[in-house]
Design a protein around this nucleic acid. Structure first.
Length: 800
RNA sequence: GCCGGAGUGGCGGAAUGGCAGACGCAGCGGAUUCAAAACCCGCCGCCUGCAAAGGCGUGAGGGUUCAAGUCCCUCCUCCGGCACCA
């Protein structure tokens, strides 16, 4: 079989089309049927786009740094590079067996030094711009395995490896200031075409809220407690302040009498695990510091408490407590702190209960007992009180985000070394760009050290180096980057994968970016998708990338579950192995079934019976070949005399063309099946009718379509591949029929179906309908009060 | 609690407000075969009926409309995300 070229051509005159799928982590298990769903869908689009005359870039590569290879190395001593190479070879074989039309000349691998050189380069740019910094952060530490764990490995506070409890250890970590881009990451969502749930999830994750920082001065001290609130309209009801146990002022504000009680409470809070502390169904508790603070708007003096429902990392780790918040309400009631109602619902019968402080009213309403703001609505009061606070220097409007900075250090081996050195004289010094990449050295043992440092820390000849600035003795950073680093910019490298002077040539970036369509899993919406948008925004800001938003359009495929409806897993034994099914049913049948299995964006269970049906469909297509009329001489593929068949062909072209764009692949396959079933009923099949079927089928089942195309009864053997055919265009004029089936309803119920000439007049339609016996029976002699006619569809006769 | 999505035959699912159940699977019947598998033809939502025909039917209840799976209101259930976030 002749091979079509899938290579994208840089700077081609044709319109470009950059289609992207998430590159896989090359695990030892091989490809998953879930990969196939995404890759097949985008392969169909890539093939269709090429037939439509586009210059298509559809690349693939390997996101090959990662924990499984490293854990395997710890167990066996086998170098991750070796297993990674084997796994990549296996994945490559599997992807090629599926016939995906990737541009293999642009393959990238995140573990290739020629690649991670540029990952390190991007880090240096972030460092230079002050967006990378070191901070003391707690890491997950398993005391039994003596290993630092990623959050994903410590879910539920339990070590994934040994099942023992995980504790927090403070460690200096590299951080990336993604929060500096919070607003842009949020605003950018309005400029791109992502599926709604992806946008919603990102907005959720960024968690923007508008509010006010309010300063409370502590009585008998020069200390000031700043709290953040979105509800400054309830400021007159402030009954107390509550600090997080880790708040820096805790020690200072605690009076002698309260010292023991506070110390006990803070210790107890610290001993609690993250899960215990954030458990929802517990009553808020706390302890009084002994100090009091002044409400800047009312001058009222309120007690300062400590409670662990207040989070240290959000806002300023302090809140003002009042009766209009469910948690504050519980705390106040529990300790008998005097509270005051200042917001009432505009109407309703619960007013008495609210006034009596029997229930908490957390919603907006109308203000009472609030000085000059009494009588205002909550939203009005928020505006005016914020203004008052700003004018009196007691507060500032501010936007607060839930998004937190990105912990960028891993105490691991199999990752990109972070390219900095520590010099006693010069401090933290970036490795000069011309010395990149900082190569990952060979180690003997892959275990992290007892101190929680990376295995790299043990290689003294690597760690000890010279300071690039003063040439004095210095030590290398031994942390490596997280998995997300390499995947945060890979789409840029595909554009110019072999460039050794820049991460990619600006002219090529200008030509190919942005990515027209990116499909991937929902599980990557908040991490990978957000991280890579952040890096691209940053690279855009420093003039490396021409567009701010990397992905013009983002879609997501639903997960494929096991035949039992459960998530596929080795332990459940419900995993479908692509190699097995491809060997048994062929790649084309698997491709067609992956698209036919159900709505593309929804979760669906695997069914090998369904796959059999797709295999049978392809066999029916192949069986038609013997009944195809020979191609007439000349360039034309001939005509179709049968008007019904011709109409169906055009209808099928339309459905397939439109439904592919909407990712309704399941209905595309059924449209092709219906068209095939119509051809099955023909004694002889017009050449044109059959080549059209093959052309429409080609993106779905390229191997079979191409093979049948070669065997067509064409005396002048075709000079080109089916894949080089132009995509068929449907002719709306051919969709019109001479007659239509008119459904006749009486009072909305179907009573007859009559064949109508397209040019029938209203009177003729009505006359025919009224003559029908069943219609007459249901009219029972009554005269129609109204007749509704929808031409081409139906007639509804309404009687009383 | 907030945000997003979904609920239709035995199963996966289809349906610009206009014949609910396309297409496929499973099932049933036939044809073929020495026999079986495959292929081929037909039937296939539920109830009544020999049939003709009729009634019911898209999570529940209301509403709009000549006409509602589809639009509006009030709920219920399931899936996903966020969550003592002030």
């Amino acid at each position: 079989m002749r091979m079509q070229s899938n290579a994208a051509r840089d700077g081609d005159a044709r319109p470009k089309q950059y289609l992207l799928v998430e590159f896989p982590y090359p695990s030892g298990e091989g490809l998953h049927v879930g990969h196939l769903r995404s890759y097949t869908a985008m392969d169909i689009l890539a093939r269709k786009r090429r037939m439509e005359g586009k210059n298509v870039l559809y690349p693939i590569g390997w996101d090959a740094f990662g924990l499984p290879a490293e854990n395997y190395a710890i167990k066996t001593g086998q170098h991750p590079r070796v297993t990674t190479e084997q796994n990549c070879a296996n994945f490559r074989r599997q992807l090629q067996a599926m016939g995906f039309s990737f541009d293999w000349s642009r393959e990238v691998n995140t573990t290739d030094p020629a690649y991670y050189r540029w990952t390190q380069w991007i880090f240096l740019q972030l460092l230079r711009q002050g967006l990378a910094y070191k901070a003391k952060m707690p890491i997950n530490w398993c005391p039994k395995c003596k290993i630092g764990l990623a959050n994903e490995e410590a879910t539920g506070g339990v070590c994934e490896r040994c099942g023992g409890p995980v504790e927090k250890r403070d460690r200096e970590q590299w951080m990336l200031k993604i929060t500096a881009y919070a607003e842009q990451l949020l605003a950018g969502l309005d400029t791109v075409d992502y599926i709604e749930r992806a946008k919603a999830q990102q907005r959720n994750w960024i968690g923007r809220s508008e509010g006010v920082d309010i300063d409370f001065s502590v009585q008998g001290s020069d200390a000031v407690i700043t709290v953040f609130t979105t509800r400054c309209d309830t400021l007159y009801s402030c009954a107390f302040l509550a600090l997080a146990p880790e708040h820096p002022l805790v020690t200072r504000l605690t009076t002698e009498a309260q010292r023991d009680a506070v110390a006990a409470y803070v210790d107890r809070a610290r001993a609690k695990t993250e899960i215990e502390r954030t458990k929802l169904d517990q009553e808020q508790d706390g302890v009084f510091t002994g100090s009091s603070a002044v409400n800047p708007i009312s001058g009222e003096v309120v007690p300062v408490w400590i409670s662990d429902f207040v989070l240290g990392h959000y806002g300023h780790g302090a809140v003002f407590g009042d009766i209009h918040d469910a948690r504050d309400f519980v705390l106040g009631k529990r300790y008998g702190i005097p509270m005051r109602v200042t917001v009432l619902p505009p109407s309703g019968d619960d007013v008495d209960a609210i006034r009596a402080q029997a229930v908490c009213y957390p919603d907006d309403g109308v203000l009472i007992d609030s000085g000059p703001f009494t009588g205002m609505t909550s939203s009005e009061a928020r505006e005016r009180i914020a203004q008052w606070l700003e004018e009196h220097g007691a507060g500032r409007r501010r936007v607060q985000y839930k998004l937190r900075d990105w912990v960028f250090s891993r105490q691991r081996y199999w990752g990109e070394p972070i390219p900095v050195v520590f010099c006693a004289a010069c401090g933290t010094v970036p490795v000069p760009e011309d010395q990149l990449p900082v190569l990952l050295p060979e180690v003997e043992r892959y275990q992290p050290t007892d101190t929680g440092e990376s295995p790299l820390a043990n290689i003294t000849e690597w760690v000890n180096t010279k300071c690039p600035q003063c040439h004095g003795p210095a030590q290398r950073e031994t942390d490596v980057m997280p998995n997300w680093a390499g995947s945060s910019w890979y789409f840029l490298r595909y554009i110019d994968p072999k460039n050794d002077r820049a991460l990619a040539d600006p002219t090529q970036l200008q030509y190919w970016m942005p990515i027209d369509w990116y499909n991937g899993g929902m599980e990557h919406t908040t991490l990978h998708l957000l991280y890579s948008r952040f890096w691209n925004l940053f690279l855009h800001d420093i003039g490396v990338v021409p567009v701010a938003e990397p992905y013009q359009k983002r879609t997501s495929h639903g997960m494929i579950l096991g035949p039992d409806g459960e998530k596929m897993s080795k332990s459940r034994g419900n995993v479908i192995n692509p190699d097995t099914i491809v060997a048994e049913y062929g790649a084309d049948a698997v491709r067609v079934y992956e698209m036919f299995i159900g709505p593309f964006d929804q979760m669906v269970p695997w069914s090998t019976d369904g796959l059999v049906g797709c295999r049978r469909f392809l066999e029916r297509v192949a069986a038609l070949l013997s009944r195809v009329d020979p191609k007439p001489a000349g360039d034309s593929c001939g005509t179709i005399a049968d008007r019904d068949l011709l109409r169906m062909m055009h209808r099928t072209i339309q459905r397939v063309t439109e439904d592919i764009e909407d990712m309704h692949f399941n209905t595309v396959v059924s449209a092709l099946m219906e068209y095939t079933n119509a051809l099955v009923k023909q004694e002889r099949i017009p050449f044109l009718a059959y080549t059209t079927l093959l052309t429409l089928l080609a993106p779905f089942a390229p191997h079979l379509a191409e093979e049948l195309h070669e065997q067509l009864p064409d005396p002048e053997a075709p000079a080109h591949l089916l894949a080089d055919h132009p995509w068929p265009v449907f002719d709306p004029a051919q969709l019109a029929a001479d007659t239509w089936e008119m459904v006749v309803q009486v009072n909305g119920k179907v009573r007859a179906t009559l064949s109508m000439p397209t040019n029938a007049t209203l009177a003729e339609m009505q006359e025919q309908a009224l003559r029908d016996a069943t219609v007459q029976k249901h009219l029972a002699g009554r005269a129609p009060t109204r007749v509704v006619v929808v031409p081409g569809k139906l007639m509804n006769i309404v009687v009383d």
